[in-house]
Design a protein around this nucleic acid. Sequence first.
DNA 1: GATGAATGAGTGTTCATTCAT
DNA 2: AATGAATGAACACTCATTCAT
Lengths: 193, 193, 193, 193
Amino acid sequence: MARGRKVNSNGEKSKQLLREKAIELFSTNGYYQTKISDIVKAAKVTQPTFYLYFESKDSLFHDLNEQFQQDLFHILEEQLQQQGMQFQKVIENLLQYFASNPLLTKIGLYQSEASYTVKEKLVEKFEQILDGQVENYHNLQRNDIHIVSQSLMGSIERITDTLLLTNRKSAKELAEDLFSIYFVEEAESVVVS
Amino acid sequence: MARGRKVNSNGEKSKQLLREKAIELFSTNGYYQTKISDIVKAAKVTQPTFYLYFESKDSLFHDLNEQFQQDLFHILEEQLQQQGMQFQKVIENLLQYFASNPLLTKIGLYQSEASYTVKEKLVEKFEQILDGQVENYHNLQRNDIHIVSQSLMGSIERITDTLLLTNRKSAKELAEDLFSIYFVEEAESVVVS
Amino acid sequence: MARGRKVNSNGEKSKQLLREKAIELFSTNGYYQTKISDIVKAAKVTQPTFYLYFESKDSLFHDLNEQFQQDLFHILEEQLQQQGMQFQKVIENLLQYFASNPLLTKIGLYQSEASYTVKEKLVEKFEQILDGQVENYHNLQRNDIHIVSQSLMGSIERITDTLLLTNRKSAKELAEDLFSIYFVEEAESVVVS
Amino acid sequence: MARGRKVNSNGEKSKQLLREKAIELFSTNGYYQTKISDIVKAAKVTQPTFYLYFESKDSLFHDLNEQFQQDLFHILEEQLQQQGMQFQKVIENLLQYFASNPLLTKIGLYQSEASYTVKEKLVEKFEQILDGQVENYHNLQRNDIHIVSQSLMGSIERITDTLLLTNRKSAKELAEDLFSIYFVEEAESVVVS
DNA sequence: GATGAATGAGTGTTCATTCAT
DNA sequence: AATGAATGAACACTCATTCAT
């Protein structure tokens, strides 16, 4: 019966809470199996309150993906400007971001259709980096770069899901593991020859 | 339109058509965005006809995944019994199956929640194989096997989606590529030493 | 695939079988919870066969009720023509019919909307009989006849359902019981006075 | 029509209205012939509004029966605790409740499958009462109690439907009538003897 | 006489979204 | 800032019935 503003209520707080609950639910149940009614129930507000802060279910989901992507490319941009930053370190920082934002990562990397674009862009970045460092990985032929980048993207994707976000391995360990799979052997064989 | 049997109608054909259209739609739009009404429209029959051949939307989707999984493990089982079958060949045949069944693969590998289990099982198979062949890949330490298998799974997943199912590369080429990334260098360095 | 007449098939037999199964199902599950598909499944024929012999679900149900009513009133008519037939015997014969046709009785007396009419007509008959025999039941005042008939109808209805059709008591016993409830005591008190 | 809240709308009123219309329709047309669409049309709201207040068609129907049963047994319990309450008065109060709640009675006593249980329980109550009062009805032999109770149940059932709910006779009159049929004669014969 | 195949017309239910307070 | 109340637009599924063979 009683309507209107709740005591102690605060717009920004409600919006933040709704966002958090939405992230939790989207990340575990996916877009279609997350209902507005679930989100508002979790945030202990009513449905119209949701529309006070977000345009629609779709737009909120879109915003979350947008943020994930911006975070991601902000990190990458930052690193590519640091001269001499090693590829392994780049990957580690990427994984570090995933580990620090597991729920958003689940959404942006697995639940969303926008993830296709994200991954494509990541692959491009990888190609750029590798392209500039072929001399460091001299068994890497120029025409391999694309497939290596794609393969690496897949590895990161899977390893993040099964080992990083499940807290079985750290970002640092996984970056090392990936590098020993993808690039290190060469160094050894160089040593041998 | 009049009720009853259509001229020249044939049950098996209708069922097959519905299945095909369902596969097409599920594979491109996913489970939730594929409506029964879409499927029957594509097959040019009415909704009740769908239920003449399938129990429910869910059960059809489930059946498609079931088939994908059985095909997959049938192939793997068959190969593991052939003594001396190389890992690369196993991967190639796997990719070959994906290439021959692109739509079912999209469903079983990307659209379905059951895909988690499928991939887990594939990883296990990879581990078994690698476990029995450590000597062949002697830079592969025993405790690496799990992470290599996971990484490989991710690579296959991604490469299948972006290069194989888009007809950019053949199963054979991709299997070779993957092997040169994951295992071959070692062989060379062995030769060198 | 194979269509057309079954070997050993016989129209009248199929019709009879369908009728029987329909009676079974209607009597236990009621009209709305009995589907044509249930009936034909029980009779091991297909749905169009049903329509070969019956116009519709509704018309079959209607026919069954029709038969029940005709049987019933045939019995009553017959008895009313036999001079000197006691009311108790009439009731006994009625119950006897119910006991001999338990399923049809369930339909005609409890499952059908037509049962309202049947019961009304039965009540009328009872009134007629009692009206002609007031002198035999001299504690029965003329203005009681209607209510006694209604009450008796209810008793018969209930007793048939719970004691007769469940084989706990015979038609004869129940007719006696009813009479000792409704009419006999008077005789005793007469004796007493 | 525009979406959202109606002017002067009030939830409890809508729920009550839906309930009432449901009772009206269920009681006259029965469960299967009453569609949600009929109920909401009668209440001048849309289908989703129905689900705002009731879980499902089935659960609403079930709730109505539940209420009928609780009312009924509350009344009976109350009376059995009053020492010296005459059986005739008990029946009268029962009929009184039916007369005051004709639609709910139609549902609970005739339309529902749960009515079987209700009637069984009523019969048991009757048996208990009669069992404690055999001396008052001394032509009533102990082994008659069950059949008398069943018969009485049937009489009540029928008389309620045809005379009470149609406003032809009052609860008081009908209770008297029933008693003069079932028990009174004895009193007279007692006087006589 | 009987069947395989198909459909018209519902029927209960859900969900994102919106209006009035 | 927030809520109570309501709805438009689907959506999966069912059932009696009918046509072509």
